[in-house]
Simulated scan of single mutants.
Amino acid sequence: MSVALLEHATHTIAVGSKSFAAAARLFAPEVRRSVLMLYAWCRHCDDVVDGQELGFTAVAQDAGAAAAALARLEAQTRQAYAGEPMQEPAFAAFQEVALRCAIAPQHAFDHLAGFAMDVREARYETLDDTLRYSYHVAGVVGLMMATIMGAKEPAVLDRACDLGIAFQLTNIARDIVDDAQIGRCYLPAQWLREAGIPQEELALPRHRAALARLAARLVEQAEPYYASATVGLAALPLRSAWAIATAHRVYRQIGIEVKARGARAWDERVGTSRATKLWLLCRGGVDALASRFRKTASARPAALWQRPIHAAGRHAAPATAV
């Protein structure tokens, strides 16, 4: 792997996700490089579809332009798996990690399907719909990350997917108002009707108290997924378990802060301070060590949303077909 690709990936995560960047430093060097390269691809795809740069709004795109951008990403992903030369640094990085770590093509295309849902301006009527979206944009990233760390057992991959879903539910709660300002809403429409909030008025200050209750409800929905994910730590190498446990603690703390701030949760972007991250890093280390002594894994709760299980060898469907 070239130094330039690693520098590109390191810069991408440092700017695009300060929360995960802190945890990523804990991985063993080879795993960390692969994780960073995968993150760079995920961030690039998100930015291309949304007309952003490293998560920050750059230019607005109409639906036609976004659909064309998504089609290019699908084509480039196929080319990456075919071993063709990649000019875009994010795709060169993805090609290397995907082929070396045998990341299933279906996982990559499932991730692109999440962006397709945004392009189509999908509506989320029920919590299951929100969970399905969360799988595509984050749960499947957990599957790819776990693959990089050497996880192969379906039960372990389920726990990795659960963590990604928990992360996304937390992100949705934190970003409700920001998303609403660009015309997006990932909260279940059923919840909005029950709360008496018209979707087109979601960002208005007069709905903050009701919105805070919905955000708290979503944060609570993430809890069983965070709990499930903890069980998967035992299957990971110790340093990987430490990194993932730290990310788990940091993202969960963001949800706790959103819930605690109530109607003030969107006055400024909720995050964690450097001191808090250091404390959570220590707690993550304790979690990782404790996982070494866990003799039996508890069964995954049947009530949790189950990721789709694709038949072995099935050709990945285009994201726009999902």
Rank of each mutant, 00 (worst) to 15 (best):
Arg25Ser: 00
Gln306Ser: 14
Leu5Pro: 05
Val15His: 03
Asn171Gln: 05
Gly150Arg: 05
Gln79His: 13
Ser34Gln: 10
Val35Arg: 00
Leu289Asn: 09
Val59Cys: 09
Glu125Met: 15
Ala173Leu: 00
Asp50Thr: 07
Ala222Asn: 11
Ala102Thr: 02
Glu74Asn: 11
Ala28Thr: 13
Tyr39Leu: 00
Ala180His: 04
Val3Cys: 04
Ile165Tyr: 01
Pro105Lys: 00
Tyr186Met: 10
Val270Thr: 02
Gly313Ala: 06
Leu211Lys: 10
Asp267Pro: 02
Gln253Ile: 09
Glu153Lys: 04
Ser298Lys: 13
Lys277Ser: 03
Gln52Glu: 09
Leu169Thr: 09
Ala288His: 01
Tyr81Asn: 06
Arg72Leu: 08
Ser134Phe: 11
Glu268Gly: 04
Arg213Tyr: 06
Asn171Tyr: 03
Ala146Trp: 01
Arg193Pro: 05
Thr130Tyr: 03
Ala227Arg: 14
Ala4Glu: 09
Arg292Thr: 13
Val219Ile: 08
Arg307Ala: 07
Tyr251Asp: 02
Ala151Thr: 02
Cys282Glu: 07
Ala290Cys: 12
Arg239Glu: 03
Ala229Arg: 07
Gly83Ala: 13
Ala122Gln: 05
Ala222Val: 15
Gly64Cys: 02
Thr272Pro: 05
Gly196Trp: 13
Ala180Met: 03
Cys42Ser: 10
His44Trp: 02
Ala302Cys: 09
Gly164Trp: 02
Ala235Tyr: 02
Pro237Lys: 02
Leu73Ala: 08
Gly284Phe: 13
Ala195Leu: 11
Arg184Ala: 03
Asp175Phe: 10
Arg78Val: 15
Thr230Ile: 14
Ile197Tyr: 01
Ala235Arg: 01
Val177Ser: 06
Tyr124Val: 14
Met117Gly: 05
Ala265Met: 01
Asp118Lys: 06
Arg43Ser: 10
Phe91Lys: 15
Arg264Gln: 08
His44Leu: 02
Thr296Tyr: 13
Arg123Thr: 15
Ala222Leu: 11
Ala104Asn: 11
Val258Asn: 09
